[in-house]
Design a protein around this nucleic acid. Sequence first.
DNA 1: TGTATATAACGTAATATTGCAATATATTAA
DNA 2: TTAATATATTGCAATATTACGTTATATACA
Lengths: 109, 109
Amino acid sequence: MGLTKSEIFSAEQNRLAQLLKALAHPARVAILQHLIKANTCICGDLVDELGLAQATISQHLKELKNVGLIQGTIEGVSVCYCINPETWKLLDQEVTSFIQGYKGAASCC
Amino acid sequence: MGLTKSEIFSAEQNRLAQLLKALAHPARVAILQHLIKANTCICGDLVDELGLAQATISQHLKELKNVGLIQGTIEGVSVCYCINPETWKLLDQEVTSFIQGYKGAASCC
DNA sequence: TGTATATAACGTAATATTGCAATATATTAA
DNA sequence: TTAATATATTGCAATATTACGTTATATACA
């Protein structure tokens, strides 16, 4: 059906999957890496930096904003984007505890 | 076009996005959490544990296997699945360095 | 007021994902 | 060999994603 059965999973599992999904595209990885390096940037910077159309970049920014990973403030003609520190912290905690949950295995199959 | 322009991104960005994509579904998060807890399991265990059809679980397992996050060994009638320690280590390194790359911002927008 | 600039929103085409029933495959036990 | 068990594969329908041209909106400046 193309429709994820969210109701059978926990809120934590759904939230983690949602955050990871927002990160799971090379363009959005690149956008976030640029934001980490530059601290702030505007849509036009990313259009130049990556090789994608303005409409596409804008859409990716929207997705990142929707899950709260970035925030944008209108600054004159443009919109200044930056990482949302609180969501990023949550991401760090959730992802780290998920990945670190695996402590290797004595024996495997 | 619905087709990601992988060629304009670095191999690292594509690989990270690929790994994250494999994790970006609550069913696959649940499968991995179960695997972490139980160390090993078979497809049937997951069908009981989660509320999804056998074909659906099998498909999610295939995706996790395709990116190398898990491995399966035929054991009589069933297939014993477990986490692939090497890929998991790579995942840990890549994801950690990506997320930890952000050191908060003095001022944001 | 008019014009340039920057971004968002809309519409569309191509492709990918999700979930499952049905079927195929492969191993074990009788 | 036959039956039972466990998975994988195939095919399908519904939905989601990706990318971009075009258009709308909103601010700044002459």
